[in-house]
Design a binder for these strands. Structure first.
Lengths: 346, 346
DNA sequence: GATCGGTGTGGTAGCGCTCCCATCAATATG
DNA sequence: CATATTGATGGGAGCGCTACCACACCGATC
């Protein structure tokens, strides 16, 4: 593609293309938009003219009349962006990006530092739809989107959400796998560090922990469950693990297995365990959840439940575009499978 | 292609606002654009109407006539996004986002997986300017941008770049600080793991390493310098460190200090050192560069040269907006200072 | 009192594009 | 041969907005 901009050279418009091609503006437009009702001859002439002039359609003008932008937004909070330990959205973003590109749309990443700004941004009609991530219970964004009639797909399922497009992974099943793996390795006292319980994925993972234990005829010991709250700031999982170790002192058995609701928490847990003189996996086995990009190179490499990140992104995008194109108001939710990734930590 | 909307729920236009406020469209427009030539009375009426109708200006229509979009793009390659170990752009992005928001513009993050697509995307005039990151020698993007007349600011300085807005940190000075710190701690044999030598920041850091040694009356021993190439794939720094240790066997003195060109490489180096039975910092002191978000929680916490990430982002944004507003073709480069962050690894 | 500049205002002309519609030639049908 | 049918085409309208211009009105100046 060669676009040469001479000073003072106005960017070519469709009229210029039509003039050079010797056809009317409408015909030129048909070629650009891929309408079938054009003669092969005219089509060639227009395509040549486009190449010669380096014509690129003006997005604003097009979107003004079509009332579409052919762009979708991926909403990301400042907070999510700055948590490299739980850098899980990278893979999703890659999947989204690939799918969006393959379909000739544009991807806009909206940093959502301030909620009201997000809404007014979207109201300007700069995108056709929105991809939302990782909701906490009480997050109003899905309802806001629905209110302003903005097509949307959510990764995760909002609390109390009846109908609407969302893509989740089998959080409960994955958690069950993790705990079963620990039990199979011989762990007798398996603790859990949960994510913030306002987060729905976290809740499901906690459920899976309980399900697995009960299925094995064990009970959930409340003393073995601590919430690793992000709000606790730096090293949330370290705090949680330290708390578990404190509680352990007054118990009969030492903790020999830990299931952490995210890899970030698992990393913290391993650090805290080390600081307390425990070896991983010899003394305590640790399993995380996410298989985020840091897990494989962590010391020790972290055994974890992998989410199909890229597939999540692709699926979300497909669903959103379908929704936009068809005008469908609701879609059945999609649940993607997780997979145990065995590494050294358990 | 019909997006379902409630019948009659047409989004209000400026004409609607003007009608409700009892003024002409021009006056309404002046209020929206913040023109001073409006009476206080008319202004109030229009603002009330806007609030009542929930009016939000249509971005496409505005940009069609103003030939501006009030949006800028932050170009990120797929590759950069997926390297959480060297997750350095997060802070820059935050700085950019803050500054953009403060100035009432929009930020678009363009995933640049395919170069030609980037160019045609930008040619559609969806943004007023571009922020470019971390260039390698031979990267054509700055020249492409200049050719199509797209205002741009670059983090780092392209090879052979004469004039043009760029923001760099004092890579050489920072590297010097790092090496001086190691020398002050008593290190006698200081190795360096460089970044890819096509990367200009990496080259400057290597220069600083040499400068510091020479200033102390030492020489650069080629056997102590290895390039930790990203292309080598996973654990580039581990490979490099292993190579250094192999070379060490045939030398008189053991390596007791390592300066890595990025924190990601430093992490790898520590892992390789541990794998070889060396303790950090007791046997070998390690200093990184970047102070990326992982450095503080690494085991051991990494001593490193901090870049003022957020400030880089803010500065880039300010320069870009000034360029856009003023139409200035060139601007003097800005160099921001680095800072030694002493932690446990050295 | 006539002229001047400054100020608030509304109307009009597009920005570049797609869509609808009228046109026209070429073919198929009665 | 007249008429209906098809397909390709160009012209015009208009998407929602801002820039420009013309105008009415004001007080100040000569």
């Amino acid at each position: 593609m060669i676009i040469s901009e001479r000073p003072g050279a106005r960017r070519p418009t469709l009229d210029d293309v039509a003039a050079v091609a010797g056809v009317g503006r409408s015909t030129a437009s048909r070629v650009v938009t891929g309408s079938p009702r054009v003669s092969a001859e005219a089509k060639r002439a227009v395509e040549d003219a486009i190449a010669v002039l380096g014509y690129v359609p003006n997005a604003a003008a097009r979107s003004l009349v079509t009332r579409r932008t052919d762009a979708i937004a991926f909403v990301l909070s400042d907070d999510e962006l700055m948590r490299p330990d739980d850098f899980y959205f990278g893979g999703i973003l890659r999947g989204v990006s690939r799918e969006v590109t393959a379909r000739g749309r544009q991807l806009v990443i909206a940093l959502n530092d301030d909620e009201s700004r997000l809404e007014s941004y979207l109201a300007r009609q700069v995108v056709d739809g929105v991809l939302l991530l990782s909701l906490e219970a009480g997050d109003s964004r899905p309802w806001d989107m629905r209110r302003i009639g903005m097509p949307m797909v959510i990764a995760g399922r909002p609390d109390g959400w009846i109908a609407g497009a969302c893509v989740t992974v089998d959080n409960e099943g994955g958690a069950r796998q993790a705990v079963e793996h620990l039990m199979a390795a011989g762990c007798r006292r398996i603790a859990m560090i949960t994510g913030g319980m306002r987060n729905l994925d976290s809740r499901a993972r906690y459920e899976g922990y309980g399900t697995a234990l009960r299925a094995a005829g064990r009970l959930v010991d409340p003393a073995l469950v601590v919430e690793g709250r992000r709000l606790m700031g730096h090293g949330a999982g370290e705090e949680a693990m330290a708390e578990l170790l404190r509680r352990e002192e007054s118990a009969d058995f030492p903790i020999d297995g830990v299931f952490a609701a995210t890899d970030g928490l698992a990393f913290d847990a391993v650090r805290a365990l080390r600081a307390a003189g425990r070896r991983v996996p010899e003394d305590v086995r640790v399993v995380g959840f996410d298989d985020n990009p840091l897990a494989a190179t962590f010391d020790p490499p972290l055994t974890t439940i992998a989410q199909p990140y890229e597939e999540i992104g692709r699926t979300m995008t497909r669903m959103l575009l379908e929704q936009i194109d068809s005008g469908a108001a609701s879609m059945p939710p999609v649940v993607l499978p997780t997979e145990l990734r065995r590494r050294a930590s358990a």
